[in-house]
Design a protein around this nucleic acid. Structure first.
Lengths: 117, 117
DNA sequence: CGCCAACGCAACCTGCCGGTTGCGTTTCGC
DNA sequence: GCGAAACGCAACCGGCAGGTTGCGTTGGCG
C-alpha cells in the first residue's frame, strides 16, 4: 500500500518492454551505433549491419515502441535518434533493484544473526 | 583500436543476454520478488505468480544462464538468490551509452553550429 | 524529364520462447 | 516406514519475433 511499493510495481510493467527492446543483439548494435555516431539514416545503419535493411527498419520501430528512439523524415531519408530519457528510466529501475536487494539481505542477516557465504 | 572502444564492443555482446533476461514480464517479477524478500524457494516464488511452478523454474534457469541468479539445494528445496554484480554490469552499460550519446550530440552541435530541437 | 536512391508495405517462412501437462525422484514429518 | 511436499525431467504445443524477398512510392539530381 505504501507509495514506494506501488511505484515499484508500476515501474516493473514499464521497465520490462525497455529491457526487452535492449535484449536483442541487432537492436543493441543499433543503439550502440546511434550512440557513437549520433542520428543516422536507415541506410547508414544498414550498411554496417549483417542483416537486411528491412530487418533494421523493423528493429527501429521496435525501439520506437519501447520509447527508446524516434525518427523524423528529412527529404527522402528517415533519420533516427535515441531518446536517452527512456534509457535512464531503465537505469533507475536497476538502481532501485540493487538497493532493495541490499536492504533485503541486511534484514535477512539481522534475522538469522549469522553471516552468509 | 582504443581500449575503451574495444571494451565497449565486448560489453555489447555481453550485455544483450542480460537485458534479454530482464525483458520478460514474468522474469522481471521474479527478480523484483527476490529483490524485495531476499532468497526464496521455487514454491514461494510460484505461489504469488500467475503461471505454473515449472514456468517459474524455467525462468529461474534462464536468469541463471544470464548470470543474474544462482541457486543452492537446501534439503528438499532449492533456494534462489540474485547476483547483483551482473545487474551493475547492465547498469554500467547504460551509463556508458548515455555518456557516448551526449558526446555524439555535442560533436554534432559543434559541427552544424546550430542547436537542435 | 527520366532515373536512381532511399524508403514503405506486405506476404511469407522458420525457429524458438513461454507455457502446460504428466510423471518420476528425493526429502521431511509423523 | 509411508505419505505428502518440493522439486526435476521430458514431451508437447501455439504464437510470435526476427529475418528475407518482392514490389510499390516518393524525392533528389543531372
Amino acid at each position: 500500500m505504501s507509495r514506494t511499493r506501488t511505484s515499484a510495481a508500476a515501474k516493473l510493467a514499464e521497465a520490462a518492454p525497455i529491457f526487452a527492446a535492449l535484449g536483442d543483439d541487432t537492436r543493441l548494435h543499433i543503439v550502440a551505433r546511434l550512440c557513437g555516431d549520433g542520428p543516422l539514416s536507415i541506410m547508414r545503419l544498414a550498411d554496417g549491419a549483417s542483416v537486411s535493411r528491412q530487418a533494421i527498419t523493423k528493429h527501429l520501430y521496435a525501439l520506437e515502441e519501447a520509447g527508446l528512439a524516434r525518427s523524423s523524415r528529412v527529404g527522402r531519408e528517415r533519420i533516427w535518434e535515441l531518446r536517452t530519457k527512456r534509457l535512464s528510466t531503465a537505469r533507475r529501475y536497476l538502481d532501485q533493484i540493487s538497493q532493495q536487494w541490499d536492504a533485503a539481505l541486511d534484514r535477512l542477516r539481522a534475522f538469522v544473526e549469522k553471516d552468509e557465504q
